[in-house]
Nucleic acid binder design. Structure first.
Lengths: 214, 214
DNA sequence: TAGAGATATCACCAGTTGGTGACATACGCA
DNA sequence: TGCGTATGTCACCAACTGGTGATATCTCTA
């Protein structure tokens, strides 16, 4: 992921002096920002507290440590995911399952590209199997699948097609390309920086879905 | 990735007392083993030296620090990649570019599944953009592309197909699925543990290639 | 206004990290 | 044989980590 300049300054507006819920929120916000900007390698109690401009003791008091904090982030994630993914408004009508799947995956790709926090969580998920990561990843995965189920409507895939396997392949490809694109701007010599670059990938996804579903 | 029990014992056979090249090799072996087993989060001068059963000072003396060590690992990687990928012997004859691509990707998937070190490097590559990681990743990517070019033979993709984009999508999917499978044993509810699980994915890859190339 | 309870801060711990300089020891060459 | 050098070891540094107990300070209630 690209290194962004530190902006460890206070990202809280209110004075928030001696206000428990406000401090708690500030810590949560700081945690998300820290993870999004600096990745899981630099994610810890000290870093979060420093960023939230409060003592790390409060992280222990209000969340019971990093694990509790991560769990809380996971709880947040559900609504957050659907917010981000629904940001583009309702889908246009789709006649086939394939068309709807294409709409879903295109939107997922766009949302993921614009969302460093989600990228970081996915990268974390693919790198480690520590229990807290699992919980975060599960929360993310669950939220995603609920959203997909909602968006699918009454459409069903055609017979003789291993739809779950196809979905896995396409979602995995999208996630990996977004991660690598964010990190290095390319993938096996295919550029992944500009919108035009991504249009090639998006077109390929559409083409693959058409070939399998139509 | 699954946690494997520590086997930090000596993985060196010879007494290797006061033998520079042997010590150097031992450090290199230890570095690879450390990265493969415990991931990049636990990868550092201290861990490697501890594992190689020597003083960390020697890592600095013989490699000029972690960066030099990683660079040397990258140099090794080239031959290592082609060794692993060529392990299955020559490919059977292929009539079309699509058939050959399928053979290549199937073998890549198998090799990757069996290779924790490569998995770790890929995960690292997708997570960070630090300069040393870049060099490792570049070495890996370059070796892979050389191998693919060699294996491709004189076959060419058909017109009107964005072959690089298709390759990017398929390789990305394979890498991501292998990573997530190794870490959690599944991906969006599709199991990725047994050989039978992977057969579903492999069949889907074949099907996608056929649809695009034949 | 006085006190109690909540909120925040500080000081400290043991352990780890990356990194360096000084020292001991064994080997090979004169 | 003795000596220089390559090899290996040890001790140390500052900085950081996760984690905890004691203390200060504010706020609200009685």
């Amino acid at each position: 992921m690209p290194e962004t300049p530190d902006q460890d300054a206070a990202e809280n507006l209110a004075p928030r002096s001696r206000n428990r819920t406000a401090t708690r929120d500030a810590i949560l916000v700081a945690a998300k920002a820290q993870l999004a900007e600096h990745g899981f390698a630099a994610f810890g109690v000290n870093a979060v507290a420093r960023r939230a401009l409060c003592d790390k003791q409060l992280v222990y008091r209000y969340f019971g440590g990093l694990d509790g904090l991560i769990d809380t982030m996971g709880d947040d994630l559900a609504s957050w995911v659907s917010d981000r993914l629904s940001a583009g408004g309702a889908f246009p009508a789709a006649e086939t399952y394939g068309q709807r799947l294409d709409q879903i995956l295109q939107r997922y790709l766009m949302a993921l590209r614009a969302d460093p926090l989600m990228q970081r969580i996915i990268a974390w998920e693919a790198s480690e199997n520590a229990p807290h990561v699992r919980r975060l990843a599960d929360a993310r995965s669950r939220a995603l699948m609920i959203w997909v189920a909602t968006m699918r409507g009454g459409l069903t895939p055609r017979d003789g097609l291993d739809a779950p396997a196809l979905n896995a392949v396409l979602v995995a490809a999208i996630q990996h390309l977004v991660l690598c694109g964010a990190a290095t701007g390319q993938f096996i010599s295919v550029p992944l920086a500009t919108d035009a670059d991504w249009l090639r990938i998006q077109a390929m996804v559409t083409r693959l879905i058409r070939a399998m579903h139509d």
